[in-house]
Every structure is written in C-alpha cells, then in structure tokens.
C-alpha cells in the first residue's frame, strides 16, 4: 500500500469523526471541571482521560470520588461500566487482519463507542484499514484528553456545576446513547427492570453496587425473554450506535 493512499484513508477517518469531536469538547471540558471539583490536579485529570479514555466510566468514577478514595470500588465499577468493550472488541477483532500485532493492541487502547461504531460501519462496505481507523481514533483521544485538561484548569474558577445544570449533562448524555439501543418493547422491559433494580439497590446498599445489580437484572430479563421466541434475535450490532454520537 502506498503512503498517499494511507494519508487519504487517515483524512477520511478524521473527516468522519469531526462532528463527534465537536460534541466531545464540551463534554470533556465538563468532565475536567467535575474532576477539579473533586480535587484532581490538571495533570491528574489529563492522566485519567489519556489512559482510561472512557467517558462514561470517568463520569461515574468522579461521581463516586471522595476522601479517602475508595480505590477498589472505583476500579470494580470502572470495569463494570466498561464491560461493553469486551463485546465490542470481540466483534472488532474479526476485522483487524490488516493491523500488525502492536497496531492491534494500540487500536484496542483507542477503542471508544464512537470509533468502534465507525469501524463497524466501515467493514460493511470494505475491509478496515489501520490508517482509516487511526484517523478516527487518534483525534478523539487528542480532543478528549485536551478538553479534560482545559476543563480541569478552568474548573477551579467555575464553581458548582449544579448551578448551570451541568451535573445533569451526563444523565442526558446516557439517555441519548440509550436511545440508540432501542429495539422495541423487549428493550423497554430490560430498561424498566434495570432502572427499578438499580434505584431500589441505591436506596438500600451503600456505594455504586447498584450499577452491577441493575445491569444484572436487565441482562437477566433479556435472557429470560429470549426463550419466548428464539427466532427473533435483536440486530447483530446496534445500528443506531453512530447516531448517539
């Protein structure tokens, strides 16, 4: 493969991810602000976004952050919130044939809901080339980590995000992502059970275990409902995933 075509692939990836980058800037700023509010230094906020690089988990972690830091609970919760990566990775690994060993490991490090969605969309039309994938994934990393850093620096003078309703922003963001998973009444049953179990668990059990309990309850409902009509699997991949971005 010649290098001009590689750079064209890369540019195509950057072009595809541009709208997502625009959305990631304020959300990254917001996360940095919340982190600073919990006592993160700008470096620590940047380090988190640069190495964890998972928005949902970072918002949940900052929400749980207190003194002394509950390390185990935060790490376990981070793992649970990110368990979806296992599924995304299992699907994506079928399309990494053109990646070198280290290239594949870097590709997975940079995998987000958004870059995964663009990669899965790409393979519907043609094989996934590394230059395209990194054109999508690298700008996302750069923008997310930079916005978080900027938010943490600015956050110290912004004050309480609740005044502006910023504390609700991540609930709103998850609702937007959730809409992309809607597949009909069965999804409704899963979400209802998950919400009910999580809200009840939150009331009686301290810490963030409500996420595991609610998530497990929702998954259980999905497994139970499946037995009632085996033929109808939900779609192979959430097609509307990209819309969430």
């Amino acid at each position: 493969m010649s290098s001009p075509s590689r750079s064209a692939d890369f540019r195509r990836g950057v072009f595809d991810i541009l709208p997502v980058l625009a959305a990631a800037v304020p959300i990254g700023l917001l996360w940095g602000t919340l982190a600073a509010g919990k006592g993160f230094t700008p470096f620590e906020a940047w380090l988190t976004s640069a190495t964890v690089f998972a928005g949902a988990a970072q918002f949940v972690a900052v929400d749980m952050w207190r003194d002394p830091v509950p390390l185990l609970l935060i790490v376990v919760t981070t793992f649970i919130v990110n368990v979806r990566h296992l599924l995304m990775g299992a699907s994506l690994q079928r399309h990494l044939g053109a990646f070198s060993g280290p290239g594949g490991l870097l590709a997975m490090f940079l995998m987000t809901d958004e870059s995964w969605a663009f990669a899965e969309r790409k393979v519907l039309a043609e094989p996934l080339r590394p230059a395209y994938y990194f054109g999508v994934a690298l700008p996302m990393w750069l923008v997310w980590s930079s916005a978080s850093l900027a938010g943490a620096i600015a956050g110290r003078s912004l004050g309480d995000p609740a005044v502006y309703g910023f504390d609700f922003a991540f609930s709103a963001m998850f609702i937007a992502i959730l809409a992309g998973f809607w597949r009909g009444p069965r999804t409704g049953a899963v979400l209802a059970m998950s919400a009910l179990a999580a809200a009840l668990a939150k009331l009686v059990i301290p810490g963030a275990w409500y996420i595991v309990i609610g998530g497990s309850a929702g998954v259980l409902v999905a497994a139970l409902l499946h037995g009632e009509d085996d033929g109808q699997d939900p779609g192979e991949k959430p097609a509307a995933y990209a819309d969430a971005a």
Binding site: I80, I175, T187, A198, Y210, A222, P234
Partner: peptide, 19 residues
C-alpha cells in the same frame, strides 16, 4: 440476547437513581 442487553442495562442502571 443477554450480551446484547448488557450495555443498555448498565447505562440505565447508572442513571436510574438520578432519574
């Protein structure tokens, strides 16, 4: 079916107390 439901179930559980 269970694995497909895992991401929305977890996301829902995260926001349920707030919502």
């Amino acid at each position: 079916a269970a694995l497909d439901a895992l991401p929305p179930a977890v996301l829902m559980a995260v926001i349920a107390p707030t919502v």
